[in-house]
Design a binder for these strands. Structure first.
Lengths: 224, 224
DNA sequence: TGAAGAACTGAACACTTATTCAGAGCGCGT
DNA sequence: ACGCGCTCTGAATAAGTGTTCAGTTCTTCA
């Protein structure tokens, strides 16, 4: 073989791959998953349509990677927020608020990743994404249960229900739509976090306290 | 005009329309929304593909009507269950359990109606469907709040979150899958109903009582 | 019974996009 | 500098389905 990839080329190829993914992400964030079509994404990434296929075997793979990427970011944010909390209940509250805030600050993207109809099959990828997130939340609920702060329960089911509640309330078609207003946005996050905490068995009074503690730092993180 | 529809013909036309809708519903219940394609539905209904278009202007209209029909049935069931309950909190619990049981006994259909990707735009219809159901649930929560059984809250948001929780926990890809077992099914319905009641602020002890009262009659109704 | 219109049929059409691939361009090692 | 092979291009292709419509069958009513 007289040809070997030089470091520079390797970097360029990686950059291109990232550019394509980023283009897909931007398209999804701007106009939803329906806008993630090969030709427009290629244009955004400054490559030809065929080139996309040198980096992703199919559209399904491209979107799957997009979902995985967003999911990784989300998971990391949840862990960061929860780990920074002083105790298991706070951690749980922080995790929930973080999801709520992320979802609200990127509603179109969140909807695309989670549930928007796509013309290729990405169920496996979505499944994996949800499994990761719900497992993380379930672990936090579990910790609170073990600490004696919550009644015993099926934590995986609870986590799934919690995420369903957040998503439907915040990104679904019935989500409130006037969330440009910062105060209204914070209110909404607080309300859904409160619902979520009570759902797993936190007493109303205590839940209200946790909510306030959780939402403020989470907001700071989202801004960053 | 020398031609007027005779009563018999009117009836036959209506029957055909129903047959087409029923065929679509069966297809959706058996194999999901993806199976609701014009040609197969026409075969099921014993008509030619073209005939479908004499009853529905487009596939989108067909599916929209399907969604509306299922939604009407669901709403009626909720009202029946809630109205039969002795008080506002019981009514709320009954409404929630009813949704949970219906969803579980027709999971594929529910998933198709609610969230499964479809190749035509049915967002408006889904939106209307959800609005009806959430409004009904919101009204029940509201009644409980007015009766002093629950803390004041944004009941529309709460209802939306509740339904999201039920749907995700019961029909989403992370839903438990071994629900053929009757006992396991009842457990799951009880668990999610409990979560839902606590979420809106019912005390844990009281919620457990309401759940038991609500699930048994709801099961009987579903069987009917 | 026959003419006129309504309803039905199903093969052909239309349209959208993912995917392919032959040729052009470029980077590597000699 | 040069040839080889990797990378890129973008127009052509492919495939799945919703939709149409000319022809056929059925229904009405004089």
């Amino acid at each position: 073989m007289v040809y070997r990839r030089t470091h520079q080329v390797v970097k360029r190829l990686a950059a291109r791959r990232s550019a394509i993914l980023a283009a897909a992400r931007d398209a999804a964030a701007e106009s939803g998953m329906a806008a993630v079509q090969i030709a427009p994404v290629a244009v955004r990434a400054n490559v030809a349509a065929g080139t996309v296929y040198r980096y992703f075997p199919s559209k399904a793979d491209l979107i799957s990677e997009l979902i995985a990427e967003v999911s990784r970011d989300e998971l990391a944010a949840i862990r960061r927020a929860a780990d920074a909390a002083p105790g298991p209940s706070s951690a749980m509250a922080a995790a929930v608020s973080t999801v709520a805030l992320h979802v609200l600050s990127q509603r179109k993207l969140a909807w695309g990743i989670l549930a928007e109809p796509v013309d290729v099959d990405v169920t496996a990828s979505r499944l994996a994404s949800r499994r990761e997130i719900t497992s993380e939340i379930a672990a936090r609920i579990d910790a609170a249960v073990r600490a004696g702060h919550l009644p015993a329960q099926d934590t995986q089911l609870a986590a799934t229900a919690l995420l369903g509640a957040l998503h439907e309330a915040l990104v679904g078609p019935l989500a409130p739509d006037n969330l440009d207003d910062q105060a209204k946005l914070r209110d909404t996050v607080q309300s859904v976090t409160l619902l979520a905490l009570r759902a797993v068995g936190v007493m109303d009074a205590r839940a209200r306290g946790l909510v306030v503690q959780a939402v403020l730092p989470a907001k700071a993180l989202v801004g960053a």
